[in-house]
Amino acid sequence: MAFRGPKVWLWRWRRNPLKRRADAVEAWVLLAAWALTALAGVLAGLATAGTVERGMARERVEWRPVVALLTEQAPGTADSRTVTPSGATIWAKVRWSAQDGSTHTGQARVRPGSGVGTPVTVWTDPEGRLVTKPASPSEARSRAALVGGLAGVSAASVPFVAGRALRSRLESRRIDQWGYEWARFGPLWGGRTTG
């Protein structure tokens, strides 16, 4: 294992007669990549989380509960209510009226064995279409944080990967330059060493 010596902070930006232009360029590329990674991740995450949370807040305002009536006998029997776990529901066809008075039909979750005409609460959007129950404020914050976090990580990966690729390219050029310089000046040292 090679001895590396004590760790020196900001060594890439210190004056050193052996530091080449390629070292300085690599240092600035690395700094820019990390800064862009952090900035892109934070901005994309915050913007996405805000958009998701505002969308869910709008849903809570616009979506309304409506009483719908079953149009057919729900599958199952009245006895199946006692057999199925508490809260178990099945899909059945229901009918409801939108705010403009138009009649709509669709599928909603109901208790097994419910009869025709049984009232069921469903949620609708302003056009009267069936939607899910809107998320509560705490659920909306959790979902927004999750989606924002995923968007932030995705956005941050772009400058991170680009920075790594550019740094790899710079390192490859530097190694090629070392080979060229060695081939040029190595023979000038004269004499060969034998062991």
Rank of each mutant, 00 (worst) to 15 (best):
Ala38Cys: 13
Thr121Ser: 07
Arg173Glu: 09
Trp91Thr: 08
Ala47Cys: 09
Pro6Gly: 10
Thr71Gly: 06
Ala98Glu: 02
Ser157Tyr: 04
Ala38Leu: 14
Ala40Met: 09
Val67Gly: 00
Arg60Ser: 01
Gly152Ile: 02
Pro65Asp: 08
Trp123Cys: 05
Ser138Ala: 14
Ser136Val: 12
Glu26Asn: 14
Ser138His: 09
Pro134Trp: 05
Trp34Glu: 01
Lys133Gly: 06
Arg15Lys: 12
Ala40Leu: 05
Val116Cys: 08
Gly128Gln: 05
Arg192Gln: 11
Thr124Tyr: 03
Ser114Met: 02
Val52Cys: 04
Pro159His: 04
Asp23Ser: 08
Ala165Ser: 11
Gly149Asp: 04
Thr82Met: 13
Gln107Glu: 14
Arg143Cys: 06
Ala155Asp: 02
Val29Ser: 04
Glu139Cys: 08
Arg173Val: 00
Ala57Ile: 05
Arg192Met: 10
Ala22Pro: 04
Ser154Val: 14
Arg64Ile: 12
Ala38Lys: 00
Ala155Pro: 00
Thr51His: 10
Gly190Ser: 06
Glu171Gly: 10
Tyr180Pro: 02
Thr105Ser: 14
Arg141His: 11
Thr84Cys: 10
Ala74Met: 04
Asp79Tyr: 01
Thr105Arg: 13
Ala98Asp: 13
Thr105Trp: 03
Gln107Cys: 02
Val110Ile: 10
Thr89Asp: 01
Thr118Arg: 14
Gly179Thr: 08
Ala74Glu: 04
Arg60Ile: 00
Ala151Asn: 06
Pro17Ala: 04
Gly87Tyr: 03
Leu69Phe: 11
Thr105Gly: 07
Gln99Trp: 10
Gly152Met: 01
